[in-house]
């Protein structure tokens, strides 16, 4: 019996490792290309560069004006994710648990834009922002980003909220808690995994977003990091080494956020709180 278990464990490890290698490979390629000179990228196909060429990174940082773009991306991502988590969870809780008129219709309306991918909605959005005086402003872009993540966020959180047993709420009401206290003290902590998932999801989405930022913003000092990367992909010439260096720099923060958020997904809910 124990050898079967060991066999199973071994094959599990092999599977895990194989998939891990396949996942890592492109990242390693990107990193190794970022350390090669332009000429070497096309001639040397191996993962290990012949000469380590750190210049790509310094070039990328300066040429791509990464300092300011980085800061902007941080602002947009942080405010965007915060906005989605707060406004989204409030709404999701309301739709899941509270008496609200037209609940189902609201939910339906939230879902529809997820399903119908209309092209060119950014044009009326652009005109709208202009009328509101929000063009070329950071707030304007952040509002768009928050808005973009609401539908999916509410969808996910509502499902998680609905799985929480009503007894918990009822117990709290008997203890005299208000709706807000229930929301803040009981419900939110219970959906931490969903919140963490959404945080990561939206961090990646906003961090990598490009089209809306370029259309709504004009002042180069407000541009996010993706705009910096655009510099390396010229109309005709692509500086692959610098591009890879830029992409590596750009990918790093998201990776860090993920590492931080991981533990919230893994910390389970105390046993007995769910279907106990």
């Amino acid at each position: 019996m124990s050898s079967k278990v060991e066999e199973a464990k071994l094959s599990s490890y092999l599977i895990l490792l194989a998939i891990a290698i396949i996942c890592l490979f492109p990242l390693l390629w990107m990193l190794s290309s970022s350390l090669k000179s332009q000429a070497e990228i096309f001639t040397n196909m191996s993962l290990i560069p012949k000469r380590i060429f750190f210049k790509n990174y310094s070039d990328a940082w300066v040429k791509g004006k990464f300092a300011i773009y980085f800061l902007n991306s941080l602002i947009y991502t942080f405010c965007g994710v915060l906005g989605i988590l707060t406004i989204g969870s409030l709404c999701a809780y309301g739709l899941a648990r509270l008496k609200i008129p037209f609940k189902d219709i609201i939910f339906l309306i939230l879902i529809i834009p997820l399903i119908v991918p209309l092209p060119g909605t950014f044009v009326p959005l652009y005109v709208l922002l202009k009328r509101l005086g929000l063009l070329d402003t950071r707030i304007g872009l952040i509002l768009c980003y928050i808005n973009g993540g609401l539908a999916f966020g509410i969808f996910l959180l509502k499902s998680f909220f609905e799985e929480i047993p009503k007894e918990l709420e009822e117990a709290a009401i008997i203890d005299g808690a208000t709706k807000w206290q229930i929301y803040f003290r009981i419900m939110l902590p219970l959906v931490k995994p969903a919140l963490a998932t959404l945080a990561i999801f939206n961090t990646v989405a906003i961090w990598n977003e490009f089209l809306l930022a370029l259309i709504i913003l004009q002042n180069p000092l407000k541009m996010p990091i993706q705009r910096g990367l655009m510099v390396f992909q010229g109309t005709h010439i692509t500086e692959y080494g610098q591009l890879m260096a830029g992409l590596s720099i750009a990918t790093l923060p998201v990776l860090i956020i993920y590492l931080l958020m991981q533990k919230y997904i893994i910390k389970g809910i105390t046993a007995g709180a769910l279907k106990g």
Partner: peptide, 9 residues
């Protein structure tokens, strides 16, 4: 609870 989201949306 739902007002900010609905308004924004």
């Amino acid at each position: 609870f739902v007002l900010p989201a609905v308004l924004m949306f």
